[in-house]
Design a protein around this nucleic acid. Structure first.
Lengths: 220, 220
DNA sequence: ACCTGAACACCGTTCAAGT
DNA sequence: ACCTGAACACCGTTCAAGT
């Protein structure tokens, strides 16, 4: 067996390989041993660059977050907020594993702070007080996280025929007596499991609430 | 070795044991073998009641959702909506594993449909059109899911001294040049990582947005 | 039907060792 | 420093078997 030459590995190469595996087989299927095998090295080779699996997770998340575009300048603040939220959602849809990476572990790493920086900057420029800006940022961020994670989960379910069949069966077995509204609105509900429209609906509710707040304080 | 007598197990007993283990050691640490060991049986004994680990997950989730209280009658609809959302959040806080159970796998099981039924019933009674009711329900549900999951995650981080130290270090190492708003608003941001106030702030934004929507259509 | 035990193909991680 | 190989203590699940 030819010994692997030195310095064939690097933190960046490992992160990119891990990301490729996660996108191919899902964040759950991903394993250190799988990444090592893909790179043609022993499992322990990775421990030179990452102390454990969680550190690799963090590095992958940080790498993905670096792909986020900057906040557009010279636009009304509600449009800027919409842009940041949509960018994050788009990135999560393009890299479904990001949802699990963000949900499973906390914010750490500089790239993750860029979302906060973008949103907070916009909100401060719009004249919101520090406390309001912070609360609004967290509200928006958790809304994007929750709604997009849900959308990704439902999309994954739809692709798995067995799981999809069980979900349909479960819905159809609900009695109209115990669940009148769910049964009556089943077609409408099915249309809300994802898509730009559903996302923008909730985002617009939040922005409308925010604007009604500002109008009270500074009546035109 | 005394052979385990028959019918010592039941689906309900297994679910309760699994739930106890998840709450004690976290949803990740939970394993089929661990549940079996706790019950004093071999790992294969569980397969009589559940086809695989995911089915047990679903059963635990459904069991937890059955603990949700009913929607209060005879209250203004915004209060009813608030009540449903707060009940779900409270249940998630009392049973942190529920966040992962809801995020990791889809809605299935009758008990899970109760949230939807409660919210949809309230919204329909308030006079919302079918499509609006469905979209609003999903928006509210995903907001509760996202914000409470985030809150739970941050609370777990705070309990782990090592992780908490790294998070503080990561925040403090942010340069005021690249992340001016994050650095400036750090104390305010820290206060938004959870708590009733933060949750109600976002919920009120959504409700305010919703009411501004209805006022346009039916001006008083 | 209900539970057992051995076995398979995996994990993350530690430890001691090579270069 | 960078990578290896063996080993430990786990997984979920299949299969054949007992009662």
């Amino acid at each position: 067996m030819a010994r692997t030459p030195r310095n064939t590995l690097s933190a960046d190469l490992i992160v990119r390989t891990a990301l490729a595996l996660m996108e191919a087989k899902g964040a759950d299927a991903f394993s250190l041993r799988g990444v090592a095998a893909e790179l043609g090295v022993g499992p322990m080779a990775l421990y030179t660059y990452f102390r454990n699996k969680d550190e690799l997770y963090d590095a992958v998340r940080d790498h993905l977050m670096s792909l986020l575009p900057d906040v557009p300048k010279d636009a009304p603040w509600p449009d800027q907020v919409r842009s940041v939220c949509r960018s994050l959602r788009l990135l999560m849809l393009q890299h479904p594993c990001l949802a699990q990476l963000l949900a499973g572990r906390p914010l750490s790493g500089h790239e993750t702070a860029r979302v906060a920086e973008g949103l907070l900057g916009v909100l401060r420029s719009a004249g919101f007080a520090p406390e309001t800006a912070a609360r609004t940022h967290t509200t928006l961020f958790t809304y994007v996280l929750g709604s997009t994670s849900w959308e990704i989960q439902m999309a994954a379910e739809r692709r798995d025929p067995e799981a999809w069949r069980r979900l349909r069966m479960s819905m159809e077995s609900l009695s109209a007596r115990d669940f009148p509204s769910v049964v009556e609105l089943a077609p409408e509900l099915a249309r809300t499991t994802g898509g730009d429209e559903q996302f923008d609906y909730g985002l617009d509710l939040l922005l409308a609430g925010l604007q009604s707040k500002t109008e009270v304080r500074t009546p035109s």
